[in-house]
Design a protein around this nucleic acid. Structure first.
Length: 430
RNA sequence: UCCCUGGUAGCUCAAUGGCAGAGCGAGCGGCUGUUAACCGCUAGGUUGUAGGUUCGAGUCCUACCCAGGGAGCCA
């Protein structure tokens, strides 16, 4: 039997079609029943009148429970009374399986319960819409870099040592030795950029930090471009163009999903180039003007990100943080060696840091000293130092957190809804 | 890891230290245009776990477990 998808119903008005899906909700009123069916592409209401179908089919309609799988056949009709504008005058219903009492009812539920049932929760309208936006963003990310001559080079997930040494790692057994799940592909990107010029990696990364916030996952996806012969300005320019590209793509292709999510679309439409650039010393002055208490020399915390997000309606690029709060591979600003040539891009509306990046230290001697200062195992960085031995060039890049970008564009309250199956502190089910 | 709040029916929540409740969902019945439909009936409980105080504990105390919110850290 042929199958029509709900998304295509508008092109089939007047025709008889078969929808294969699941029962989303049902209402009945004596001699007429309304079956809302979802198929992954949308939801359509099927109208079953006692006068239109056989008594057997009509009777069968009573027993179809929420999320039962079924195939419905009927004529497509435009009708203002129907959610979505189109409905089906049903002629036949074929039940594939009658679902047991479905735990996620149309009424409200708590987050803990919904997360326990994440495998079912993703069937809900908003959750499905979020996953579609996520897929759109992934495609935009790939297109952006592929179209600009970046080469996708996958970096390893199992690594011999910490990339940054500062964050906690997931340890795994590796043939009697220890290995760690990657927390960034950056160091490998620096090698691939020296080989191929412009590269990027895109995959899952892992952080065993015991953080418990609405912006953190233990396993999240990150895209990291790296460019040979690039300085901080190049990195900032790429960052803002990248973000605008992603937004434009989602606004173009996933407007319907943003509406389902009740996202304030106007807030996204006004994101324009160039983004405001604020250096760390300038930011300290701004915090004073705003009356926000902040100690010069500290890294930004959640309250600071919130304040910045409230004061600007554009993503803000904060650059040149103090060296001492940043990772060992950051290059110092020649004009002020206490500041690093780095940038954080903070999203508006309080969604926090989307991008962290900057220019890398390219001098062998300086880097060797930094590794020592940060008490990192010199052995593990032997290959990394080679990159400064054989044709070292100024280079830089950044990392963008996929789920935070999804959270921002979807207006999600919590990052756990922005990945199909989130891995969170002490939680790995389902 | 720390701080705050909570844990009662499948779910969301009530219950002054004194009879264990409602709405939704489920089951049965009614209704030809419902929009989280509506109306009637029925079933559904070791009140997170283990101790303690009390004539009496869902309620008070102690410990633990779990969940939610926040902090630090980060993308």
């Amino acid at each position: 039997m042929s199958q029509t998808y709900i998304v295509d119903l508008k092109n089939n008005v007047g025709k008889s079609v078969t929808i294969k899906g699941w029962l989303y909700n049902k209402r009945s009123s004596g001699k007429i029943k309304f079956l809302q069916v979802r198929d992954g592409t949308g939801i359509v209401q099927g109208v079953m009148a006692a006068s239109d179908v056989s008594p057997e089919v009509f009777k069968q309609g009573d027993g179809i429970t929420q999320e039962s799988s079924l195939e419905v056949t009927g004529t497509v009709r435009a009708d203002k009374r129907a959610p979505g504008g189109y409905e089906l005058t049903l002629r036949n219903v074929k039940v594939i399986q009658i679902a047991e009492a479905y735990p996620i009812t149309p009424k409200e539920h708590g987050t803990g319960f919904l997360m326990e049932n994440r495998h079912l929760w993703i069937r809900s309208r908003k959750q499905a819409a979020t996953l579609k936006v996520r897929a759109e963003i992934v495609r935009a990310i790939r297109d952006f870099f592929d179209d600009r001559g970046f080469v996708l080079v996958d970096t390893p997930i199992l690594t011999p040592a910490a990339c940054e040494g500062t964050t906690t790692l997931f340890e795994v057994e590796y043939f009697g030795d220890k290995a760690y799940l990657t927390q960034s592909g950056q160091l490998y990107n620096e090698a691939t950029a020296a080989a191929l010029g412009k590269t990027y990696c895109f995959g899952p990364t892992f952080r065993a930090e015991k953080s418990k916030t609405r912006k953190h996952l233990m396993e999240f996806w990150m895209v990291e471009p790296e460019i040979a012969y690039a300085d901080l300005d190049d990195v900032m320019k790429l960052s803002e163009e990248f973000i605008v590209f992603i937004i434009q793509r989602v606004l173009k292709n996933r407007r319907e999903e943003l509406e389902i999510l009740e996202r304030d679309i106007a807030a996204l439409e006004k994101i324009k180039l160039p983004f405001p650039r604020v250096s760390y010393p300038e930011l300290i002055k701004l915090f004073k003007e705003w009356g926000h208490d902040f100690v010069d020399g500290n890294d930004l915390g959640a309250p600071e990100e919130t304040v910045i997000g409230e004061k600007f309606d554009q993503p803000v690029m904060i650059h040149r943080f103090p060296m001492k709060v940043k990772a060992f591979y950051m290059k110092a600003d020649p004009k002020n060696p206490d500041l690093a040539l780095c940038v954080d891009v903070i999203a508006p509306e309080g969604f926090g840091e989307l991008i962290g990046g900057g220019q890398r230290e390219d001098n062998l001697k300086t880097l060797e000293k930094k590794i020592k200062e940060h008490k990192l195992p010199a052995n593990a960085f032997k290959w990394y130092l080679d990159l400064r031995r054989y044709g070292s060039v100024p280079h830089g890049g950044f990392g963008l957190g996929l789920e935070r970008t999804v959270a921002w564009l979807c207006g999600s309250e919590h990052i756990r809804e922005c990945i199909p199956f989130p891995r969170m502190l002490y939680k790995i089910y389902p």
